[in-house]
Design a protein around this nucleic acid. Structure first.
Lengths: 176, 176
DNA sequence: ATCAATTGTTGTCGTCAACAACAATCTTTC
DNA sequence: GAAAGATTGTTGTTGACGACAACAATTGAT
Protein backbone atom coordinates (compact mmCIF):
# COMPACT_ATOMS: atom_id res chain seq x y z
CA UNK A 1 0.00 0.00 0.00
CA UNK A 2 2.82 2.38 0.87
CA UNK A 3 6.08 3.27 -0.74
CA UNK A 4 7.17 -0.28 -0.02
CA UNK A 5 10.33 -0.70 -1.99
CA UNK A 6 11.84 1.75 -4.36
CA UNK A 7 14.84 -0.50 -4.73
CA UNK A 8 15.01 -3.68 -6.73
CA UNK A 9 14.61 -6.02 -3.78
CA UNK A 10 11.56 -8.18 -3.79
CA UNK A 11 11.84 -11.18 -1.55
CA UNK A 12 14.47 -13.52 -0.27
CA UNK A 13 15.46 -16.28 2.14
CA UNK A 14 15.67 -20.01 1.96
CA UNK A 15 13.07 -20.46 4.65
CA UNK A 16 15.63 -22.05 6.91
CA UNK A 17 14.65 -24.04 9.95
CA UNK A 18 14.77 -21.42 12.65
CA UNK A 19 12.59 -22.74 15.40
CA UNK A 20 13.85 -21.88 18.83
CA UNK A 21 14.10 -18.24 19.86
CA UNK A 22 17.41 -19.03 21.54
CA UNK A 23 18.97 -19.40 18.14
CA UNK A 24 20.38 -16.02 17.34
CA UNK A 25 23.04 -15.34 14.78
CA UNK A 26 21.96 -11.92 13.57
CA UNK A 27 24.01 -8.93 14.59
CA UNK A 28 21.18 -6.61 15.49
CA UNK A 29 22.47 -3.31 14.19
CA UNK A 30 22.10 -2.86 10.50
CA UNK A 31 24.67 -0.17 9.86
CA UNK A 32 27.11 -0.16 12.76
CA UNK A 33 28.73 -3.56 12.94
CA UNK A 34 28.70 -4.09 16.70
CA UNK A 35 27.34 -7.21 18.33
CA UNK A 36 24.03 -5.64 19.34
CA UNK A 37 22.80 -8.61 21.29
CA UNK A 38 21.23 -6.85 24.22
CA UNK A 39 19.08 -4.17 22.69
CA UNK A 40 17.56 -3.44 26.05
CA UNK A 41 17.60 0.08 27.35
CA UNK A 42 14.16 0.49 25.89
CA UNK A 43 11.55 2.78 27.29
CA UNK A 44 9.22 -0.18 27.08
CA UNK A 45 9.75 -1.10 30.70
CA UNK A 46 7.14 0.53 32.84
CA UNK A 47 4.41 -0.23 30.34
CA UNK A 48 1.98 -2.69 31.83
CA UNK A 49 0.29 -3.49 28.55
CA UNK A 50 3.47 -4.66 26.90
CA UNK A 51 4.45 -6.93 29.77
CA UNK A 52 0.95 -8.33 29.95
CA UNK A 53 0.86 -8.97 26.21
CA UNK A 54 4.11 -10.89 26.27
CA UNK A 55 3.01 -12.87 29.29
CA UNK A 56 -0.37 -13.63 27.82
CA UNK A 57 1.32 -14.90 24.70
CA UNK A 58 3.58 -17.19 26.69
CA UNK A 59 0.83 -18.48 28.92
CA UNK A 60 -1.53 -19.26 26.05
CA UNK A 61 1.19 -21.06 24.13
CA UNK A 62 1.95 -23.17 27.16
CA UNK A 63 -1.72 -23.89 27.68
CA UNK A 64 -2.15 -24.95 24.07
CA UNK A 65 0.97 -27.09 24.22
CA UNK A 66 0.02 -28.70 27.51
CA UNK A 67 -3.46 -29.56 26.25
CA UNK A 68 -2.35 -30.38 22.74
CA UNK A 69 -3.00 -34.07 23.23
CA UNK A 70 -6.68 -33.36 23.83
CA UNK A 71 -6.80 -30.52 21.27
CA UNK A 72 -8.43 -27.95 23.53
CA UNK A 73 -7.73 -24.25 23.31
CA UNK A 74 -8.08 -21.78 26.19
CA UNK A 75 -11.39 -20.35 25.02
CA UNK A 76 -12.88 -23.78 24.49
CA UNK A 77 -11.75 -24.74 27.96
CA UNK A 78 -13.35 -21.67 29.50
CA UNK A 79 -16.63 -22.37 27.74
CA UNK A 80 -16.77 -25.96 28.91
CA UNK A 81 -15.80 -24.95 32.43
CA UNK A 82 -18.61 -22.42 32.69
CA UNK A 83 -21.16 -24.81 31.26
CA UNK A 84 -19.97 -27.59 33.51
CA UNK A 85 -20.33 -25.39 36.57
CA UNK A 86 -23.66 -23.93 35.46
CA UNK A 87 -25.62 -26.44 33.40
CA UNK A 88 -28.56 -25.06 31.47
CA UNK A 89 -27.11 -21.64 30.78
CA UNK A 90 -28.16 -19.92 27.58
CA UNK A 91 -25.61 -18.95 24.97
CA UNK A 92 -26.23 -15.33 25.76
CA UNK A 93 -25.45 -15.89 29.42
CA UNK A 94 -22.25 -17.80 28.68
CA UNK A 95 -21.09 -15.20 26.22
CA UNK A 96 -21.71 -12.39 28.68
CA UNK A 97 -20.03 -14.26 31.50
CA UNK A 98 -16.89 -14.93 29.47
CA UNK A 99 -16.82 -11.59 27.71
CA UNK A 100 -17.01 -13.14 24.25
CA UNK A 101 -19.54 -12.32 21.56
CA UNK A 102 -22.61 -14.32 20.81
CA UNK A 103 -21.46 -14.71 17.23
CA UNK A 104 -18.12 -16.11 18.30
CA UNK A 105 -19.72 -18.50 20.77
CA UNK A 106 -21.80 -19.99 17.99
CA UNK A 107 -18.73 -21.37 16.24
CA UNK A 108 -17.15 -22.46 19.49
CA UNK A 109 -20.24 -24.45 20.40
CA UNK A 110 -20.45 -25.85 16.90
CA UNK A 111 -17.02 -27.41 17.22
CA UNK A 112 -17.66 -28.62 20.75
CA UNK A 113 -20.97 -30.10 19.70
CA UNK A 114 -19.30 -31.80 16.74
CA UNK A 115 -17.01 -33.51 19.19
CA UNK A 116 -19.98 -34.49 21.35
CA UNK A 117 -18.65 -32.61 24.35
CA UNK A 118 -21.51 -30.11 24.64
CA UNK A 119 -25.14 -30.31 23.63
CA UNK A 120 -27.60 -27.54 22.88
CA UNK A 121 -30.96 -28.46 24.32
CA UNK A 122 -34.06 -26.62 23.32
CA UNK A 123 -35.23 -24.55 26.26
CA UNK A 124 -38.71 -25.31 27.53
CA UNK A 125 -39.51 -21.81 28.72
CA UNK A 126 -37.93 -19.80 25.92
CA UNK A 127 -38.07 -21.35 22.50
CA UNK A 128 -35.47 -18.88 21.27
CA UNK A 129 -32.68 -19.99 23.54
CA UNK A 130 -30.73 -23.17 24.04
CA UNK A 131 -29.91 -24.71 27.38
CA UNK A 132 -26.28 -25.71 27.29
CA UNK A 133 -25.15 -28.93 28.90
CA UNK A 134 -22.09 -31.11 28.94
CA UNK A 135 -22.61 -34.55 27.49
CA UNK A 136 -21.52 -37.58 29.46
CA UNK A 137 -18.45 -37.70 27.31
CA UNK A 138 -18.01 -34.00 27.91
CA UNK A 139 -18.02 -34.40 31.67
CA UNK A 140 -15.34 -37.05 31.77
CA UNK A 141 -13.37 -35.14 29.16
CA UNK A 142 -13.56 -31.92 31.17
CA UNK A 143 -12.20 -33.75 34.19
CA UNK A 144 -9.15 -34.69 32.18
CA UNK A 145 -8.88 -31.18 30.77
CA UNK A 146 -8.83 -29.81 34.28
CA UNK A 147 -6.01 -32.11 35.26
CA UNK A 148 -4.00 -30.92 32.29
CA UNK A 149 -4.92 -27.32 33.01
CA UNK A 150 -3.65 -27.79 36.56
CA UNK A 151 -0.39 -29.02 35.10
CA UNK A 152 -0.29 -25.90 32.98
CA UNK A 153 -0.80 -23.77 36.07
CA UNK A 154 2.19 -25.50 37.62
CA UNK A 155 4.20 -24.43 34.60
CA UNK A 156 3.11 -20.87 35.26
CA UNK A 157 4.16 -21.17 38.88
CA UNK A 158 7.54 -22.48 37.79
CA UNK A 159 7.93 -19.62 35.39
CA UNK A 160 7.07 -16.65 37.58
CA UNK A 161 7.17 -18.20 41.04
CA UNK A 162 4.50 -19.74 43.18
CA UNK A 163 3.81 -16.69 45.32
CA UNK A 164 4.03 -14.34 42.36
CA UNK A 165 1.38 -16.35 40.57
CA UNK A 166 -0.96 -16.11 43.52
CA UNK A 167 -0.32 -12.41 43.84
CA UNK A 168 -1.07 -12.02 40.17
CA UNK A 169 -4.36 -13.86 40.53
CA UNK A 170 -5.26 -11.64 43.44
CA UNK A 171 -4.42 -8.44 41.58
CA UNK A 172 -6.43 -9.46 38.53
CA UNK A 173 -9.28 -11.07 40.43
CA UNK A 174 -11.62 -8.22 39.52
CA UNK A 175 -11.35 -9.10 35.85
CA UNK A 176 -12.47 -12.68 36.14
CA UNK B 1 -19.71 -27.76 9.33
CA UNK B 2 -21.41 -29.49 12.19
CA UNK B 3 -24.90 -30.51 13.03
CA UNK B 4 -25.70 -26.85 13.43
CA UNK B 5 -29.43 -26.73 13.60
CA UNK B 6 -31.80 -29.60 13.13
CA UNK B 7 -34.68 -27.35 14.04
CA UNK B 8 -36.23 -24.75 11.82
CA UNK B 9 -34.54 -21.79 13.44
CA UNK B 10 -32.21 -19.84 11.26
CA UNK B 11 -31.46 -16.36 12.53
CA UNK B 12 -33.09 -13.60 14.48
CA UNK B 13 -32.76 -10.34 16.38
CA UNK B 14 -33.21 -6.69 15.60
CA UNK B 15 -29.58 -5.91 16.33
CA UNK B 16 -30.56 -3.70 19.21
CA UNK B 17 -28.21 -1.17 20.70
CA UNK B 18 -26.58 -3.16 23.47
CA UNK B 19 -23.28 -1.47 24.03
CA UNK B 20 -22.26 -1.40 27.62
CA UNK B 21 -21.63 -4.68 29.41
CA UNK B 22 -23.39 -3.26 32.42
CA UNK B 23 -26.63 -3.48 30.52
CA UNK B 24 -28.06 -6.78 31.44
CA UNK B 25 -31.63 -7.77 30.81
CA UNK B 26 -31.22 -11.45 30.11
CA UNK B 27 -32.06 -13.90 32.82
CA UNK B 28 -29.12 -16.24 32.33
CA UNK B 29 -30.67 -19.61 32.84
CA UNK B 30 -32.46 -20.91 29.84
CA UNK B 31 -34.75 -23.49 31.37
CA UNK B 32 -35.07 -22.64 35.06
CA UNK B 33 -36.56 -19.21 35.33
CA UNK B 34 -34.51 -17.81 38.19
CA UNK B 35 -32.72 -14.49 38.00
CA UNK B 36 -29.32 -15.99 37.33
CA UNK B 37 -27.45 -12.74 37.41
CA UNK B 38 -24.33 -13.81 39.23
CA UNK B 39 -23.21 -16.93 37.44
CA UNK B 40 -19.98 -16.92 39.37
CA UNK B 41 -18.97 -19.98 41.31
CA UNK B 42 -16.99 -20.98 38.30
CA UNK B 43 -13.86 -23.05 38.44
CA UNK B 44 -12.34 -20.35 36.28
CA UNK B 45 -10.86 -18.56 39.26
CA UNK B 46 -7.39 -19.82 39.90
CA UNK B 47 -6.57 -19.84 36.22
CA UNK B 48 -3.92 -17.27 35.49
CA UNK B 49 -4.40 -17.36 31.76
CA UNK B 50 -8.05 -16.41 31.95
CA UNK B 51 -7.44 -13.47 34.25
CA UNK B 52 -4.55 -12.29 32.13
CA UNK B 53 -6.59 -12.56 28.96
CA UNK B 54 -9.41 -10.44 30.36
CA UNK B 55 -6.96 -7.91 31.72
CA UNK B 56 -5.01 -7.74 28.50
CA UNK B 57 -8.24 -7.10 26.64
CA UNK B 58 -9.16 -4.25 28.95
CA UNK B 59 -5.72 -2.68 28.92
CA UNK B 60 -5.41 -2.76 25.15
CA UNK B 61 -8.84 -1.24 24.68
CA UNK B 62 -7.93 1.56 27.07
CA UNK B 63 -4.64 2.11 25.27
CA UNK B 64 -6.36 2.31 21.91
CA UNK B 65 -8.99 4.64 23.28
CA UNK B 66 -6.47 6.89 25.02
CA UNK B 67 -4.35 7.16 21.89
CA UNK B 68 -7.28 7.27 19.49
CA UNK B 69 -6.69 10.92 18.67
CA UNK B 70 -3.26 10.07 17.26
CA UNK B 71 -4.41 6.73 15.83
CA UNK B 72 -1.63 4.62 17.31
CA UNK B 73 -2.11 1.04 18.43
CA UNK B 74 -0.07 -0.74 21.07
CA UNK B 75 2.12 -2.66 18.64
CA UNK B 76 2.82 0.42 16.57
CA UNK B 77 3.77 2.24 19.74
CA UNK B 78 6.17 -0.50 20.81
CA UNK B 79 7.84 -0.52 17.39
CA UNK B 80 8.37 3.23 17.42
CA UNK B 81 9.63 3.13 20.99
CA UNK B 82 12.25 0.50 20.22
CA UNK B 83 13.41 2.27 17.09
CA UNK B 84 13.51 5.58 18.89
CA UNK B 85 15.66 4.11 21.64
CA UNK B 86 17.88 2.15 19.24
CA UNK B 87 18.19 3.95 15.91
CA UNK B 88 19.62 1.93 13.08
CA UNK B 89 18.23 -1.43 14.12
CA UNK B 90 17.40 -3.92 11.42
CA UNK B 91 13.87 -5.23 10.98
CA UNK B 92 15.04 -8.61 12.13
CA UNK B 93 16.44 -7.16 15.34
CA UNK B 94 13.28 -5.20 16.09
CA UNK B 95 11.08 -8.20 15.41
CA UNK B 96 13.16 -10.40 17.66
CA UNK B 97 13.25 -7.81 20.40
CA UNK B 98 9.48 -7.34 20.39
CA UNK B 99 8.63 -10.96 19.81
CA UNK B 100 6.74 -10.29 16.61
CA UNK B 101 7.35 -11.91 13.27
CA UNK B 102 9.33 -10.42 10.45
CA UNK B 103 6.33 -10.77 8.19
CA UNK B 104 4.13 -8.86 10.58
CA UNK B 105 6.68 -6.12 11.07
CA UNK B 106 6.74 -5.50 7.33
CA UNK B 107 3.14 -4.29 7.32
CA UNK B 108 3.61 -2.35 10.54
CA UNK B 109 6.55 -0.48 9.05
CA UNK B 110 4.66 0.06 5.82
CA UNK B 111 1.94 1.95 7.63
CA UNK B 112 4.38 3.88 9.79
CA UNK B 113 6.44 4.79 6.75
CA UNK B 114 3.30 5.90 4.95
CA UNK B 115 2.68 8.32 7.75
CA UNK B 116 6.29 9.50 7.58
CA UNK B 117 6.99 8.45 11.16
CA UNK B 118 9.66 5.87 10.38
CA UNK B 119 12.09 5.51 7.51
CA UNK B 120 13.84 2.44 6.17
CA UNK B 121 17.38 3.37 5.21
CA UNK B 122 19.48 1.07 3.12
CA UNK B 123 22.20 -0.38 5.28
CA UNK B 124 25.74 0.35 4.17
CA UNK B 125 27.29 -2.85 5.46
CA UNK B 126 24.52 -5.31 4.62
CA UNK B 127 22.59 -4.61 1.46
CA UNK B 128 19.89 -7.03 2.55
CA UNK B 129 18.84 -5.17 5.64
CA UNK B 130 17.31 -1.81 6.38
CA UNK B 131 18.45 0.53 9.11
CA UNK B 132 15.34 1.79 10.86
CA UNK B 133 15.13 5.38 12.02
CA UNK B 134 12.50 7.76 13.24
CA UNK B 135 11.89 10.72 11.01
CA UNK B 136 11.91 14.20 12.47
CA UNK B 137 8.16 14.06 12.44
CA UNK B 138 8.34 10.65 14.04
CA UNK B 139 10.45 11.91 16.92
CA UNK B 140 8.12 14.73 17.89
CA UNK B 141 5.14 12.45 17.37
CA UNK B 142 6.63 9.77 19.61
CA UNK B 143 7.07 12.36 22.34
CA UNK B 144 3.36 13.03 22.23
CA UNK B 145 2.56 9.34 22.07
CA UNK B 146 4.58 8.81 25.23
CA UNK B 147 2.63 11.48 27.04
CA UNK B 148 -0.62 9.82 26.06
CA UNK B 149 0.78 6.40 26.97
CA UNK B 150 1.65 7.77 30.39
CA UNK B 151 -1.93 8.88 30.74
CA UNK B 152 -3.00 5.38 29.83
CA UNK B 153 -0.72 3.97 32.52
CA UNK B 154 -2.46 6.22 35.00
CA UNK B 155 -5.73 4.65 33.95
CA UNK B 156 -4.22 1.25 34.70
CA UNK B 157 -3.10 2.46 38.10
CA UNK B 158 -6.59 3.74 38.80
CA UNK B 159 -8.06 0.42 37.75
CA UNK B 160 -5.95 -2.02 39.71
CA UNK B 161 -4.23 0.27 42.19
CA UNK B 162 -0.92 2.07 42.06
CA UNK B 163 1.03 -0.45 44.09
CA UNK B 164 -0.63 -3.40 42.38
CA UNK B 165 0.44 -2.05 39.02
CA UNK B 166 4.03 -1.78 40.15
CA UNK B 167 3.93 -5.25 41.61
CA UNK B 168 2.55 -6.51 38.35
CA UNK B 169 5.35 -4.89 36.39
CA UNK B 170 7.86 -6.45 38.72
CA UNK B 171 6.35 -9.90 38.44
CA UNK B 172 6.26 -9.77 34.66
CA UNK B 173 9.57 -7.97 34.21
CA UNK B 174 11.19 -11.11 32.88
CA UNK B 175 8.87 -11.09 29.88
CA UNK B 176 9.73 -7.61 28.67
C1' DA C 1 -52.85 -7.04 18.03
C1' DT C 2 -48.88 -4.18 17.50
C1' DC C 3 -44.29 -2.79 18.32
C1' DA C 4 -39.89 -3.06 20.75
C1' DA C 5 -36.49 -6.10 22.63
C1' DT C 6 -34.01 -10.55 22.96
C1' DT C 7 -31.72 -14.91 21.17
C1' DG C 8 -29.23 -17.52 18.05
C1' DT C 9 -27.29 -17.21 13.63
C1' DT C 10 -24.74 -15.71 9.45
C1' DG C 11 -21.67 -12.73 7.36
C1' DT C 12 -18.01 -9.21 6.86
C1' DC C 13 -13.99 -6.63 8.37
C1' DG C 14 -9.62 -5.88 10.61
C1' DT C 15 -6.04 -7.46 13.94
C1' DC C 16 -2.87 -10.86 15.05
C1' DA C 17 0.19 -15.14 15.43
C1' DA C 18 2.17 -18.97 12.86
C1' DC C 19 4.00 -20.92 8.65
C1' DA C 20 5.74 -21.53 4.14
C1' DA C 21 8.02 -20.02 0.15
C1' DC C 22 10.90 -16.91 -2.57
C1' DA C 23 14.86 -13.27 -4.49
C1' DA C 24 18.60 -10.87 -3.02
C1' DT C 25 22.30 -10.96 -0.30
C1' DC C 26 25.87 -12.33 3.10
C1' DT C 27 28.84 -16.11 5.08
C1' DT C 28 31.15 -20.21 5.20
C1' DT C 29 33.72 -23.86 3.22
C1' DC C 30 36.24 -26.42 0.11
C1' DG D 1 36.98 -17.91 -5.94
C1' DA D 2 32.99 -20.79 -6.74
C1' DA D 3 29.49 -23.67 -4.44
C1' DA D 4 26.60 -24.52 -0.57
C1' DG D 5 24.29 -22.83 3.35
C1' DA D 6 22.29 -19.24 6.14
C1' DT D 7 20.09 -14.60 6.78
C1' DT D 8 16.97 -10.51 5.55
C1' DG D 9 13.01 -8.56 3.80
C1' DT D 10 8.92 -9.75 1.45
C1' DT D 11 4.51 -11.97 -0.06
C1' DG D 12 0.98 -15.07 0.75
C1' DT D 13 -2.02 -18.33 3.34
C1' DT D 14 -4.19 -20.15 7.32
C1' DG D 15 -6.66 -19.95 11.59
C1' DA D 16 -8.05 -17.80 16.08
C1' DC D 17 -10.17 -13.76 17.70
C1' DG D 18 -12.85 -9.28 18.61
C1' DA D 19 -16.12 -5.95 16.70
C1' DC D 20 -20.18 -4.96 13.92
C1' DA D 21 -24.18 -5.36 11.20
C1' DA D 22 -28.17 -7.63 9.66
C1' DC D 23 -31.75 -11.13 9.87
C1' DA D 24 -35.75 -14.87 11.40
C1' DA D 25 -37.90 -16.58 15.24
C1' DT D 26 -39.54 -15.64 19.44
C1' DT D 27 -40.72 -13.13 23.65
C1' DG D 28 -42.47 -9.25 26.25
C1' DA D 29 -44.66 -4.85 26.76
C1' DT D 30 -48.33 -1.68 25.48
Amino acid sequence: MASKQQTSRKAAGTGAAIRRPETRAANGRADSGDTGDDIGLDALVGHAGYAVRRFQLWIFQDFIKTLATVDIRPTQYSVMTVIGANPGLSQMAVAKRLGIERARLVHLLDSLEERALVSRIQSATDRRSHALHLTGRGKTALAQFKRLAAEHERHVAEKIGKENREQLLQILASFT
